[in-house]
């Protein structure tokens, strides 16, 4: 391949990666903004999305139903994590570092729960017929599944945008993210908003999980946690609590990792993303502290 083709191909991959990272990072950013809880188990929500689709696939091969199944499993898991574990820490006023460690514990638990049930071996996700057919779109060549993934991501992001900007509930989410105390004395049911935000973050992560599994047609219990750092990178570069920033950052991170992979050893893909993350943390440490609450 000549160098231009290499570049264009990697940019094409980059957009697919960006779509997946965006889904997971937007959810993470929103959830951290609204709930003020860091979440190391976000990778497992991605994994649960993939395995949820696998479970539904035992019953039906319908892509839409499989995807919804994956999203539902991840969404419910996220909701339950908050409702049954994290909420009790918050209620007691536990230090945030305990919450961070607790989510690491949850991550370990959930990942190994899948390993216990399904084993660590690779599980095959049946892809719809014709999904590997290549389509020329402008200078890029994408497979059917690539187009599906990007389409789903665009629909999901647009839906989230509508919810956040135009619905009473979405505005309440932004309000809680901005200033939880004031939200409370404004009569906003903060707990309900937080619970539903976990659900939404889970749904988005679940969709990302189905998408990741869709790119290879397979999954292992670490499929999500392998993605966690890239997702964190995008969320932090975009500014925690700023889902739109996460979207932009996801596109950057997706493109940079895939393009660099075309020139470096592709095993360094994650390393490149993490390097971006470390740079971001060093350059703007506030990204982690949701000081950006003031800006969104």
């Amino acid at each position: 391949m000549d160098s231009l083709t290499v570049l264009l191909t990697s940019i094409g991959f980059g957009f697919v990666t960006a779509a997946i990272v965006a889904l997971a990072a937007i959810g993470l950013s929103l959830q951290i903004g609204v709930t003020n809880v860091p979440n190391f188990a976000h990778g497992e929500l991605i994994t649960f999305g993939a395995y949820g689709a696998l479970i539904v696939q035992f019953v039906t091969d319908n892509v839409l139903l499989d995807t919804l199944g994956g999203m539902a499993l991840a969404g419910v898991t996220a909701w339950a994590m908050n409702r049954f574990v994290l909420q009790s820490f918050v209620k007691r006023g536990a230090p945030r570092i305990y919450l961070l460690i607790a989510t690491a514990g949850l991550s370990f638990f959930l990942q190994n729960l899948l390993a216990f049930i399904f084993g660590e071996r690779t599980q095959v996700l049946q892809l719809p017929a014709g999904s590997s057919t290549g389509y020329h779109v402008g200078p890029f060549v994408w497979t059917g599944i690539d187009l599906l993934i990007m389409g789903a991501a665009i629909v999901a992001v647009a839906a989230l945008y509508v919810v956040l900007q135009f619905t009473k509930f979405g505005k309440a989410q932004r309000a809680v993210s901005n200033n939880p105390e004031l939200a409370r004395v404004s009569g906003i049911p903060v707990n309900r908003v937080i619970n539903l935000t976990w659900l939404i973050a889970g749904l988005l992560a679940g969709l990302a999980g189905v998408a990741v599994a869709g790119t290879t047609g397979s999954m292992v219990p670490t499929i999500g946690s392998d993605f966690l750092l890239v997702v964190f990178a995008a969320a932090i570069v975009g500014g925690l609590g700023r889902p739109y920033g996460a979207l932009v950052a996801a596109v950057i991170v997706g493109l940079v990792t895939e393009v660099s992979a075309a020139y470096l050893n592709s095993a360094y893909k994650t390393t490149v993303a993490v390097a971006i993350l470390v740079l971001a943390i060093l350059i703007r440490p506030n990204g982690i502290f949701t000081v950006s609450r003031e800006i969104t």
């Binding site: 932004r174 309000a175 200033n179 800006i295 969104t296």
Partner: peptide, 29 residues
């Protein structure tokens, strides 16, 4: 609040990222 008591804190008393109208809307949640 539902019974008709409103409280306006001294600091951090608005939602900075929301528009003025949205702030009011949240007040009437």
């Amino acid at each position: 609040i539902a019974h008709g008591v409103a409280y306006v804190p001294q600091l951090r008393n608005v939602f900075p990222a929301l528009t003025v109208l949205e702030n009011l809307e949240m007040g009437g949640y």
